[in-house]
Structures are given as structure tokens and as C-alpha cells.
Simulated scan of single mutants.
Amino acid sequence: MSEIRDINARLGALAKALPEVAGGFRQLAKGVHAGSRFTGAQKELLAAAFGVVRGCEDCIVYHLDAAKKQGAEREDLLELLGIAVEMGGGPAMVYAAKALSAFDAGN
């Protein structure tokens, strides 16, 4: 879990350095996570899948941590990882493997 602490520390330092940008981003995230047809866990798994396609390891770890806290299931992640690989090709395959490993390890 030190990986998520490191990510949060980096984000906190950036938020202190760019408070208006960070505040705007928090408002954006708040709006995205407001009520909808998707659960919080589903939204976090989708965000992790986008992280796979974009090749952002910190995004994957951050959103998988949030998804697990909200009760995400491995089978749901696997379905989204398949779509991510379809859309992202070989690089997404590598990041999908990292995402599954992180989910299974609890990170």
C-alpha cells in the first residue's frame, strides 16, 4: 500500500503548488462521481481501464485502490481489461497485466 501513499503524496504536493488547478480538477471529479447509472466501483474500474489504455501506472493503481474500497469484483475488472486491450493493443496488454497483478495484490 505504500505505492498508493506515494501517489497521494505526489498529488498533494502538486495540489499545494497549483491550488486553483487542483480545485478545478476536484470539482470535475466530484461532478463525474455524482449520481448516475454506474456504481462508484464501476466508475473506478472504468477509470483504471482508461489508465491501461493510456499507459498510466499511477492512474491504474489509484483507481483500482478506490474500486476495491467500493467493492469492485475481479470479474468486472477482467471484462474491462479485455476491452482496454482491444482498444489499446500490445501496450495495453502489458498494462492490463500490471492492473490485474495490482488488483490481486491489493494495491
Score class of each variant (00 low, 15 high):
90 G>I: 10
84 A>R: 05
78 L>K: 13
55 G>K: 04
57 E>M: 08
86 E>H: 15
66 A>I: 04
83 I>W: 09
65 D>S: 11
66 A>D: 04
55 G>H: 04
65 D>K: 06
56 C>D: 15
80 L>H: 09
89 G>M: 03
77 L>Q: 06
69 K>Q: 14
85 V>G: 06
68 K>D: 01
81 L>A: 07
77 L>I: 10
78 L>T: 12
85 V>W: 03
58 D>Y: 04
61 V>D: 04
80 L>M: 13
89 G>I: 13
88 G>R: 05
85 V>E: 09
68 K>M: 15
81 L>M: 02
84 A>Q: 00
68 K>C: 04
76 D>S: 10
81 L>G: 07
82 G>Y: 01
68 K>I: 11
87 M>N: 10
80 L>F: 13
88 G>K: 09
84 A>W: 04
65 D>N: 11
67 A>R: 00
56 C>K: 14
59 C>M: 08
71 G>A: 07
79 E>Q: 15
65 D>P: 00
77 L>F: 11
58 D>F: 07
62 Y>W: 10
78 L>R: 11
84 A>D: 01
67 A>H: 06
90 G>F: 14
66 A>N: 02
77 L>W: 03
55 G>A: 02
65 D>H: 12
73 E>L: 15
86 E>D: 13
71 G>H: 03
74 R>S: 04
63 H>C: 01
71 G>W: 00
60 I>E: 07
83 I>L: 15
68 K>A: 15
79 E>C: 06
66 A>T: 00
73 E>N: 12
67 A>C: 02
63 H>L: 03
86 E>N: 11
64 L>H: 02
64 L>P: 00
57 E>Y: 11
62 Y>I: 03
83 I>A: 14
59 C>E: 02
80 L>T: 05
87 M>Y: 08
61 V>M: 09
77 L>E: 04
63 H>G: 05
88 G>F: 03
72 A>D: 01
86 E>P: 00
69 K>H: 09
65 D>F: 10
82 G>L: 08
76 D>R: 10
85 V>P: 05
90 G>N: 11
57 E>L: 15
58 D>R: 02
90 G>M: 13
73 E>K: 15
74 R>N: 02
59 C>V: 10
82 G>A: 08
58 D>G: 09
84 A>L: 05
72 A>R: 01
64 L>R: 04
60 I>W: 03
79 E>G: 13
77 L>M: 12
55 G>Y: 00
83 I>E: 03
84 A>G: 02
64 L>Y: 06
73 E>I: 08
85 V>I: 13
59 C>H: 03
75 E>D: 14
56 C>Y: 07
89 G>H: 12
67 A>P: 02
57 E>F: 06
89 G>T: 12
88 G>Y: 02
67 A>K: 02
77 L>S: 08
68 K>L: 14
86 E>R: 14
88 G>A: 07
60 I>F: 03
88 G>L: 07
74 R>L: 08
80 L>I: 05
70 Q>C: 10
76 D>Q: 14
79 E>H: 10
56 C>A: 12
58 D>H: 06
88 G>E: 08
86 E>W: 12
84 A>H: 01
69 K>C: 06
55 G>I: 07
90 G>H: 11
61 V>R: 13
84 A>P: 03
